[in-house]
């Protein structure tokens, strides 16, 4: 059991972090905390993707173009760059979502004067 955890520790870290983020999004009553949970959640997926590109003893994926085209490249010697590229896009998406969410939160605050969900629900019920 322990060996299994150690051998695939990157996946365990991602699962634990993701659950923390998920808990914050669902369980916390403060909206900024929810937003932070959402950020943890997104970052976890980025970590997960990046960790899948890693190979043991592999170098950075900057290679000689002509060697690559000639097919002389040893694939095991370089990391897989594609997950990094994908996550670049995912980071941009994450930043935009956070930006929009913060803008929405300022509007919520202006409307209700608080960001605690309980207090807002109380004000709506009144």
């Amino acid at each position: 059991m322990l060996e299994e955890i150690v051998a695939k520790y990157n996946y365990w870290i991602y699962v634990v972090l993701m659950m923390i983020g998920f808990y914050a999004m669902i369980g916390k009553r403060n909206m900024v905390k929810k937003l932070l949970g959402m950020n943890i959640f997104q970052t976890t997926i980025i970590l997960f993707f990046i960790s899948t590109g890693v190979k043991r003893d592999a170098g950075i994926p900057i290679v000689d173009k002509y060697a690559g085209l000639a097919g002389e490249l040893e694939v095991a010697a370089v990391m897989n760059p594609l997950p990094h590229v994908l996550m670049l896009t995912a980071i941009v998406v994450g930043v935009s979502v956070t930006g929009v969410a913060l803008a929405v939160l300022t509007r919520v605050y202006r409307e209700y004067g608080t960001l605690e969900e309980d207090e807002i629900l109380e004000k709506i019920g009144r």
Binding site: M38, F41, V97, A101
Partner: peptide, 18 residues
């Protein structure tokens, strides 16, 4: 209540996309 509804959608929508 639109911003509040929008924020709930942000949270749920992000979970879905993730």
């Amino acid at each position: 209540r639109a911003p509040l509804a929008s924020f709930n959608y942000v949270i749920m929508g992000t979970i879905g996309a993730c």
